[in-house]
Amino acid sequence: MTLAAQNISLLLGDGEAQATILNNVNIHVSAGEMVAIMGPSGAGKSSLLAICGGLRRASSGSVTVGGVNLGDLSDSELARIRRQRIGFVFQQSNLVPSLTALDQLLLVAHLNGEGTHGKARTEALRLLAEVGMENRATRKPAQLSGGERQRVGIARALMGNPALLLVDEPTSMLDQGRGREIVELLAQQCHAHKVATVMVTHDASMVSVVDRVVKLVDGRVVSEGAPT
């Protein structure tokens, strides 16, 4: 099991103002499996994603990524796990404005202490080609369309062969057609790279390509199963 989140609860605030964001949530994702987390706004989808990615600590419960319990790790160890085992695809793509498409990928190699020439460069160009962005490698985010930025974001997330891909609302800024393309690309990459993928979305029309759908309401899992 690449990702195993067990009995995850998240409480925010103190005293009477305390709110339960997640309540005993369990989620398991295997290598090459794509799971969609759906639910209305405020259901706790992104909080669950943040906890699974080591961006936030749960109030209780445990998360293991590739057998490593994230709860046992310090902040710097969490950072190391994120750069070595987890790839993120963010809402609005979230690219570094000063970097070209190629540099966005090479940044991941640089964070891992690898050189940015030779093998890393070849790998980055191959991934850009996989997402159809080989001709846009030298463009900066401001010179790319929304769909192109999201493709670069996917290629960046796959750089360094992560075991887990966490995707946050990848279609929220795209029209229906572009959004569909991006989700299909994600599914294709998930299966091709055998990477466990968790995608948060509120768009029911995008989940037909995933293997499993987990529905969250008010911080609880209310249903789980194949997409309908």
Binding site: I81, R82, Q84, F88, V108, R156
Partner: peptide
């Protein structure tokens, strides 16, 4: 700020 948060999310530690 947003860029630094992003790079941290990608795995950069404070030292880097």
């Amino acid at each position: 700020t947003a860029e630094i948060g992003l790079v941290k999310a990608l795995g950069a530690d404070n030292g880097y």
